[in-house]
């Protein structure tokens, strides 16, 4: 009997703790599929963030380090400098990467560290209970923006991928989304490409993945995919390759 579907080998055989409908599970799967496709899990060191993906060190079948909030790119830099022939990746959310860790991600990209960054943008802090993120949309409600994010005083969302793409050290930056099957497939190709480019020593690569947070958005999973990502996020965070050299 032909196997038509199976769990990626690089994904650990443990139940994930994510909320129903959260797209972290899909994003994890894409990373694991890439490690399988490139047959490099036994030579990979991942760096987990602080945020919803804090337990990611238990979910991948490879060596992992757990970083302090926002510092994953610095930790990855240290690992990569010791193990230049290993595959090193960070998996970070938007609070981690775009707020407290903005200096670390920017500087790692500036240095052209040959690492892969998986950036999950769901426009909110999930783990701590739905606070406003730098990526939160104008008008979007959060527990620390109960009247919706205000342009005056709270500003408009930061587009990290566009910013990182301006740096010479970043050689591949793409924004993808997980809101439907076609886009998941595009995301899969982007993630795999980001890892492949690292193996080919092409320098810093980052894939921004637009994701959902049904729990903190207060929506059903399907509404989250259709309403927020498709209708609200895509106009602010256009998909596509921002840079490929």
């Amino acid at each position: 009997m032909a196997v038509v579907f199976e769990k990626p080998k690089a994904l650990a055989n443990v139940p994930l703790h994510y909320c129903p409908g959260c797209t972290h599970g899909i994003a994890h799967r894409l990373v694991a599929q890439a490690l399988d496709a490139l047959d490099c899990a036994d030579n990979t060191i991942g760096v987990a963030p602080v945020g919803c993906a804090v337990f990611a060190y238990d979910y991948f079948n490879c060596d992992m380090q757990e970083a302090a909030h926002g510092r994953a790119p610095a930790v990855a830099t240290g690992i990569k400098r010791v193990c230049p022939e290993s595959v090193v990746f960070t998996y970070q959310g938007d609070g981690d990467l775009a707020a407290i860790g903005l200096a670390e991600i920017t500087s790692a990209a500036m240095r052209g560290e040959n690492i892969t960054v998986i950036f999950i943008n769901n426009a909110i802090y999930g783990m701590t209970g739905g606070q406003m993120a730098p990526t939160t949309l104008v008008g979007q409600k959060a527990t620390t923006a109960p009247y919706g994010r205000q342009l005056v005083g709270q500003g408009s969302p930061i587009r990290v991928s566009e910013m990182i793409a301006t740096l010479d050290g970043a050689t591949y930056v793409e924004r993808v989304s997980l809101h439907d099957a076609a886009n998941v497939n595009r995301a899969k190709r982007a993630v795999e490409k980001a890892f492949r480019r690292q193996i080919e020593k092409k320098g810093f690569s980052m894939v921004e993945i637009l994701s959902t947070c049904p729990t903190n958005w207060g929506l059903s999973p399907v509404e989250a995919l259709n309403y927020i990502i498709k209708e609200q996020m895509l106009p602010v965070y256009p998909l596509g390759v921002l840079k490929e050299e």
Binding site: V47, Q65, R71, A74, V75, T77, G78, R81
Partner: peptide
């Protein structure tokens, strides 16, 4: 490093390896 914070976290990563 870009800061002392980044430097000590690079130490964490490298020493962890």
């Amino acid at each position: 490093a870009e800061s002392e914070i980044a430097a000590i976290n690079m130490v964490y990563g490298a020493a962890g390896a």
